[in-house]
Design a protein around this nucleic acid. Structure first.
Length: 426
RNA sequence: GUGGCUGUAGCUCACCAGGUAGAGCACCGGAUUGUGACUCCGGAGGUAGCGGGUUCAAGACCCGUCAGCCACCCCA
């Protein structure tokens, strides 16, 4: 017999972890709604060309990390490696950007990379994209929104905001020339990867981790000196907004994002609690992407949150949530079980927020109580012969020292209403 | 894609000049009449990731392969 395992880099999220995921997701939904962002749901597969054009032909993502294949019509398709390209495509296709739009989406992304902690081949992101506002109040709102999310999740103390401005495309072109000129003279002192990038993507040399390369970069031309006045002013304005919001930040002049479409202000939220993959959230402005995809020129900015990394961070901070059952229903035998059926059915309709777990498969009271205990339920509802003949039910507390009691069916409703009120849910 | 470490019961791990596997936790059952958690007793559960080689004999050694982890790389 053949046994199957999930394929490399594809990860099952098991019941032990889903309560934390769900809690994180609902919190995110609330925060996004509180800022007036609306959900958009997008396909997981797009034309390969869409990503090549937006992300950039010479980026690592496009060069070697895409899950691409030809469909039955021999068209090249790609499992989305990120969400912005598809979102912009949808905005253009449906003409959504006639007025400013605040959008978000959540779902799986795919990159063919070597897996390690915090890096999978299928992973999940929440993407937030805002269209139509060119001024840095938009960048500030996006950062404020993300900080609000960290606060609500209890991870804000573990995250640091890094910001930078990478200017316009023409600023970067001029800077690239200067940087290449400077580094070419010192070519042999650079690490191998940086030597290669000298031809392909020189700006990425800036965030090389090689100490030798970084030392050479200390005396290199600075990107900031090549920014036009607009980029500079808008960056300074963003910093002023961050100060007004009381969001601590670190200007990282070597922060350059890996995707070609970014311009002007960019940012990352990072942590050192996760090892090498410390970026939990990254984003910035991408003012020319809408036009590239055939829309009317339209400024835009956004960011993406890596959900696995966020979960890992929450786990590292020992943030736990659980949703145990409220009631566990025990019946003495087949006849009493049948007696409970219409009653539990009615209770579920009457109290939709109540988690009622019915014991299945029979067994002794002893074994049923063991299960009841393991379910985490607060109360066991016990139906034996006596209860059934008297139209009663026995309530046994499983989490407290309160006394067990037997009450009439009619009183159960009042009891459960009180229970929900106590647990602040009714 | 590169380098290093690891891979034994559901989980965490052990044994071992190489002589066909064990613990704790978890699981199931029991300790007289309809009651969990603690305790005691018993039980079930493993093609030792997979394939090949060396050997009388391999979970242990060698090779390959797959997977995980760590770092590089890259990003979320």
């Amino acid at each position: 017999m053949t046994t199957y395992k999930a394929i490399r880099g594809m990860v099952d999220i098991l019941p032990a972890a889903t309560p934390l995921w769900q809690s994180m997701e609902t919190t995110a939904l609330e925060v996004l709604a509180s800022y007036g962002y609306e959900e958009i749901r997008l396909p997981v597969i797009e034309s390969t060309g869409l990503f090549a054009r937006s992300i950039g032909e010479v980026t690592d993502i496009v060069e070697k990390e895409m899950y691409s294949f030809n469909d039955r019509n021999d068209d090249s398709m790609t499992l989305r490696p990120e969400g912005t390209a598809g979102c912009v495509r949808a905005v253009v296709q449906h003409n959504l950007a006639t007025t400013p739009q605040r959008l978000w989406y959540m779902g799986p992304m795919f990159r063919y990379e070597r897996p390690q902690k915090g890096r999978q081949r299928q992973f999940h992101q929440i993407g937030v994209e805002a269209f139509g506002v060119a001024t840095p109040d938009q960048d500030a709102e996006l950062i404020a929104l993300s900080r609000q999310l960290w606060r609500r999740l209890g991870v804000d103390d573990a995250l640091t905001l890094e910001v930078n401005s990478i200017g316009s495309a023409s600023d970067r072109a001029r800077y690239r020339e200067a940087l290449v000129a400077y580094l070419s003279d010192r070519r042999e002192a650079l690490d191998i990867d940086s030597q290669r990038r000298l031809q392909t993507n020189p700006l990425r040399i800036l965030d090389s981790k090689s100490p030798d390369t970084q030392e050479i970069l200390d005396a290199a031309p600075a990107l900031r000196d090549y920014l036009d006045s607009e980029s500079r002013e808008e960056f300074d304005q963003l910093l002023a907004y961050l100060e007004a919001l009381d969001i601590p930040y670190r200007i990282n002049p070597r922060l350059v994002r890996g995707l070609d479409y970014y311009n002007k202000s960019v940012f990352e939220w990072t942590t050192n609690a996760l090892g090498a993959q410390g970026t939990v959230c990254g984003g910035g402005r991408y003012d020319s992407l809408v036009e590239i995809f055939g829309g009317k020129p339209m400024p835009a900015a956004g960011f993406a949150v890596g959900l696995e990394r966020l979960i890992l961070l929450m786990q590292a901070l020992e943030i736990t949530v659980s949703s145990p059952a409220d009631l566990y229903v025990i019946a003495a035998d087949e006849g009493t079980y049948r007696h409970t059926l219409p009653r539990m059915d009615a209770l579920r309709r009457q109290f939709p927020d109540l988690n009622i777990v019915q014991h299945l498969g029979g067994g002794s009271f002893k074994s049923q109580f063991k299960r009841a205990d393991k379910s985490g339920a607060s109360w066991a509802l016990v139906y034996g012969e006596t209860e059934v003949t008297n139209n009663q039910v026995t309530l046994k507390p499983l989490r407290s020292e309160a006394a067990q009691r037997t009450i009439g069916d009619a009183e159960l409703t009042a009891f459960l209403a009180d229970f929900l009120a106590e647990t602040q849910r009714a």
